[in-house]
């Protein structure tokens, strides 16, 4: 369970998040929606410990999140990952990064780790690219490599920041089917997304954020009123057929 208590965050006196209180119970498949600049990525980065807390607290399984993160890992798929396209790494080596916490400094990956990495690559459908250089992969393939890295540690929690970026429509659909299967298998998932149709189909819990938490309710309850409250007048619902 992830608990966020009275969380506020500002950058140069601009309020990014204000008094956020939220509980993400185990087994939930939650979606975080909101307009650009609503603080979605900031909230995720605070949970993951990339940003320091200013006001409020975050607990994971009842333990302050930074303490918890020292001993455990959370699967994380970032929106953009900065790296040198010429970096001499294969897809397999990047997936193995997700297992570093399980090894002591100075120790090497063993065949069991490589097997687990290969299983994660198989799960995301790119096992055949295991030995390919990162620089040779397309945006969609890279996204799957990073997703495999998020899955390889078999963490109880999975956090995704706009996973549909770089994926085509069938790719988005197959990704969410995979996420739903992982959720059914017990993983607690929190994903940022703009695709309300796909969220309402697959997610069980909706978090609407626009600096403040506007509502958090079952995904089936997505309706024009909630969207209006979160996004303002700039958005209207359009049915999309995948």
């Amino acid at each position: 369970m992830i608990e966020i208590c009275s969380l506020s965050y500002n950058i140069n006196r601009n309020i990014i998040l204000e008094d956020i209180n939220l509980t993400l119970t185990d087994g939930e498949f939650a979606a975080l929606i909101g307009p650009n600049g609503a603080g979605k990525s900031t909230l995720i980065k605070l949970i993951l410990g990339f940003l320091p807390l200013q006001t409020g607290a975050i607990y994971i399984e009842g333990i302050p999140h930074l303490e918890w993160l020292k001993e455990h890992s959370i699967g994380y798929l970032p929106q953009h990952e900065e790296f040198n396209r010429n970096f001499p790494a294969t897809a397999m080596e990047i997936v193995l990064m997700g297992l570093v916490r399980e090894l002591h400094p100075g120790s090497r990956f063993k065949s069991i780790h490589r097997q687990r990495a290969m299983q994660a690559l198989t799960l995301t459908g790119i096992a055949h690219l295991a030995n390919h250089q990162l620089g040779s992969l397309s945006g969609g393939e890279l996204q799957r490599v990073f997703l495999a890295r998020a899955l390889v540690s078999d963490s109880k929690y999975l956090i995704l920041d706009e996973p549909e970026a770089s994926l085509d429509q069938p790719g988005v659909k197959s990704l969410f089917i995979l996420l739903k299967d992982l959720n059914k298998a017990g993983k607690t998932i929190l994903t940022i997304s703009h695709d309300l149709n796909i969220l309402s189909e697959y997610c069980s819990f909706l978090i609407c954020l626009n600096r403040r938490l506007h509502c958090h309710t079952s995904a089936e309850l997505v309706n024009a009123e909630i969207i209006h409250k979160t996004f303002g007048d700039t958005v209207r619902l359009i049915e999309k057929d995948y």
Partner: peptide, 12 residues
């Protein structure tokens, strides 16, 4: 060398 921020996140 790949990405210091992600390396830290994954326990390096």
């Amino acid at each position: 060398s790949y990405n210091a921020e992600m390396a830290k996140f994954y326990g390096v």
